[in-house]
Amino acid sequence: MRHETRPSLRRAAVVVMLFAALALVASPSARAQQGDGSPATPVGVAEVGERETSQTVPVVGRLVARRAGVVAAKGTGAVEQMAVDVGDVVEAGDLLARLDTESVSLEVDLAAAEVEQREAALEEARSRLALARQELERLSDLRRSAAFSQARYDDKSEEATGLGHAVSVAQATLTIARARLSLAEVALRDAEIRAPYPGVVTERHTEVGAFVTKGAPVVALLNNRDLEVEADVPFDLVDGLTAGDSVDVVLDDDTRSVAVLRALVPAEDARTRTRPARLTLPDAAAAGHDLAAGQSVTLFLPEGPAETVVVVPKDAVISNPSGATVFVVTNGVAQPRPVTLGNAVGDAFTVEGGLRPGDVVVTRGNERLRPGQPVRATVPPSARGGDAGPQG
C-alpha cells in the first residue's frame, strides 16, 4: 500500500502545477505585469506641472467712447440745411449742417475786390519809386558836370524816400486786405458744419430755420469705433495694477478677451473708495460684435501677486462622494490616488495635496480603469499641467 500512495501524490502535484500554469497564462493582467508584451489599456496621459497664477476678483465695468460730445457751430447765422438725422453713421469730414451763406459770400467777394485794389496800389507805388530812384541815379552821375544841381538832387532824394514809405504803407494795406479775405473765406467755410471724427449722430440740437450763434450745439456725435473699458477699481486692488498690465475681460455675450490697462486715474472717490481705470480692447474683440457705449463688461482683476502652484488637468480628476481621485501611472500600471484640490485655474485645478510635479496622470479613459490595471499612453494628452492657460 505504501508503494501505491507515492505515485498518486506525485500525479496530484503535477495536476495542481498544470492548473496554476494555465491560470497564469489565461490572466492578461498577470501576463502584462510580467512584461511578456500582452496588450494594455490605451489611455491619454498628462504630467502634473506648475503654473504661475493669481486669484482674481470680478469687477463690472462699461464700454465708453474715447471721443464723444457736441459738435458746435463755428459761425453765426440761420440754419439752411440739416444733412443728418439721429442714428446716421458719418465719416470724418462729412457735412452735418449748413448755415445761410449769402451774406458771407458777399463779404468774401468784397474782401477779394479790396485785395485786388491794394495789389494795384502797391504796384503803382513800386513803379513810382523805381522811377524816382532811376532819376536820382542819373542826377548822381552828373555830380562832376556843370549841369549838376544840388538842390534838384536833394529834392529827388527826398521824393524817393517818401515813395519808399508809400510802398511800405501799400504793402501793409495789402496784407490787411488779404487777412480780411482770409477771415471772410474762413467764415464761409465755417458755415458748413462737418464731422470732426467718424461716428454716429446721437442727437440733433437745432433745426432748419433756427438761428445759431458761434459755439451753439448743432448735433451730438459718438465714435463707436473707438471704445474702451472704464471701471471703478476698489482701493485694495490698486496696488496690483500697473499701466500696461493685461486683464481678462468678458463681454455681456460671454465673449472672452484680454484688455490692456491704459491708465489708472489717481482720483479716489471718498464714498466708494474706488479709482477710475481705462483699459484698451484689442481690435479682434470688437470684430463681429455690435458693441455700444454703456455696455457692461466684467473684468477679472488680480487680488494679489502671482504665485507658483501645482496644477492637475481637470480631465484627470474623478469626483466621487468620498472626494476627488486621479489615476497615477507608475511603470505602466495605473493606481488610484486621492487628492486635495484647490481653485480652478483655466483648464486645471490647483493641487493642495496628493500629487507632485512630474507625476503622470490619466486624462482619457480613466473612467473605466481598475486599480492596478496596466495602461499604455497611446491617446494624445488632453492637457498639460504646466501649460499656460486662462487664469481664474
Rank of each mutant, 00 (worst) to 15 (best):
V297Y: 15
T350K: 06
E352Y: 11
L281K: 06
G346I: 14
T340L: 08
G323Q: 01
P305W: 13
F327N: 01
A316V: 05
F300E: 00
L261N: 00
P321E: 05
N320L: 11
P305I: 04
V265D: 03
R271T: 05
N343P: 06
T340D: 02
T330P: 10
N320H: 14
G346R: 12
V339Y: 03
T255M: 06
K314C: 05
N331Q: 08
N320D: 11
E303T: 07
G346K: 12
D269S: 14
D253P: 10
R275G: 06
V351N: 10
V309Y: 07
V345K: 08
P336W: 07
V312M: 07
A324P: 05
E268M: 15
T330F: 15
D269R: 12
P313G: 00
A270S: 13
A334S: 13
Q335T: 15
Q335F: 14
S319Y: 14
P305F: 10
K314A: 11
H289K: 12
R278T: 02
I318M: 13
N331L: 07
L279Y: 10
V311E: 01
L301K: 08
A267M: 14
V351A: 13
N331A: 13
T298Y: 12
V329G: 04
A316F: 06
V317K: 01
T350L: 04
V297I: 12
P313R: 02
P302Q: 09
